[in-house]
Simulated assay, not measured.
Amino acid sequence: MDVITMGETMALFSPEQNGMMRYAHMYSRKFGGAESNFAIGLTRLGHQTGWISRVGNDELGKAMLQFVRGEGVNVDNVKLEDKAPTGLYFKEFRREGEIRVQYYRKGSAASLMNEEDADEAYIKKARYLHITGITPALSTTCRQAVLKAIQVARSHGVTIVFDPNLRKSLWSEEEARTTLLEISALADIVLPGIAEGEFLFGTEDPEELGRLFLEKGAKEVVLKAGEKGTYYYSKNDSMFVPAFQVANVIDPVGAGDGFAAGYVSGLLDELSVNDAILRGNAVGALVTQVNGDVEGLPEKEEVMRFMSSEGEDVTR
């Protein structure tokens, strides 16, 4: 197994028409979640992934399992939960450039994950463990599950990748800051955005953020600066890799998950750090051009074509 990830995926409903959702009568149903988006992104790039989670023992949960399994992700450690339903969220396209997301996930099946879900025999098979800051925010038992997974990974030499993926609505700012800094200190690679770095440390300066994350304990910091590009910091190296510019952004949701998939794919393929970041930037850019969390995740051939400037509406 190349990568294992742990977290919640929800059923996603989007109105068939743009504008205020109160006027919508028809919706399309998809699935989305940072961790499964990441796992699916990696499978499309040719890697083996596994996903740890719980879904409701309901029709949406069963459909979700079928969907994620169909994308090539191993779901052996996803449990059907009788005591709670599959989480939901709605994505509202109010007008061009304005997208609102509303979650209905409190008390969901995934929030019941606990230390038992961090199966040692499963996690130790992987080269990388991917964690986001969303999962520990779901419940106390989810936080315990994440910390147990990290402990298992560290004990077996599995590289830990942490994407803070801050969701302020899920917990207090104090609890979020404390927990995200705790996990950052335990991770090998941290993938924050500039805004997340400012939330955690009170500064937007990339060099300062790189230094602070490294001082906390991370070995590598991959700092995402949106349409500008990506900064990289380690004990012995630093660089900036410009982004691919996209003329028409359709849906930015999921771009960070796409970047993470592209970057880790580059590491798995033993690319240089610069080239791995380039691949991450390319996947993130491609994701923004399609409506949906996973629908825009590309296969490797498409990424290579895009990076060679053969795709449409792309400059570098």
Rank of each mutant, 00 (worst) to 15 (best):
R305D: 14
A84C: 12
L147V: 15
M239Q: 07
K148D: 03
N114R: 06
G193V: 14
V283D: 06
E198Y: 07
L186F: 11
S169N: 11
Y89G: 07
E71T: 11
K168I: 15
R305K: 05
L60G: 04
E115Q: 11
E120N: 03
G311P: 07
E173T: 11
A34W: 03
F38P: 02
A137Q: 14
Q151E: 12
F162W: 11
V68N: 13
P206I: 01
M26P: 00
L60Y: 15
P206L: 06
E173V: 06
E174C: 08
G46V: 08
N236G: 13
R167H: 09
A24G: 06
A24D: 04
A276Y: 09
K91H: 05
R22W: 12
P252T: 12
A260W: 02
G56H: 15
R316P: 03
P192E: 09
K235A: 15
T179Q: 14
A187Y: 08
A247F: 07
T140V: 13
E115A: 12
S234M: 00
V158W: 04
G56R: 15
C142E: 15
L147I: 14
V221L: 04
P85I: 06
L223A: 10
M20A: 11
A187Q: 14
E196Q: 01
F259T: 01
G284Q: 03
G266D: 04
V290P: 02
L278W: 03
T179M: 15
V3L: 12
Y128I: 02
E196A: 13
T49E: 10
F13D: 09
V152L: 06
T132V: 07
D275R: 11
Y104H: 10
R29L: 09
K125R: 12
G61E: 12
G41A: 07
T5A: 11
S184D: 10
Y233T: 01
V303E: 04
N77C: 13
G296I: 00
L214G: 00
L278M: 06
G41Y: 09
V314R: 12
D58F: 09
S169T: 09
V249S: 00
A218N: 14
N165T: 05
Q48D: 10
E198F: 04
K125F: 07
G296M: 06
V253I: 15
V294S: 05
C142M: 02
G266A: 10
I150N: 07
I4N: 07
P136H: 14
P164W: 02
S14H: 04
M239N: 04
T43P: 01
V264R: 03
V294L: 04
E302Y: 00
S234A: 08
G193T: 14
E182S: 05
E310M: 13
M307F: 03
T315W: 15
T135L: 08
G46F: 03
S14R: 02
F93K: 01
R167W: 15
L286G: 01
F31Y: 14
Y233G: 02
E98W: 14
G87N: 12
E81P: 11
K106F: 01
G193L: 04
S309H: 10
Y104C: 09
Q289V: 05
E92A: 04
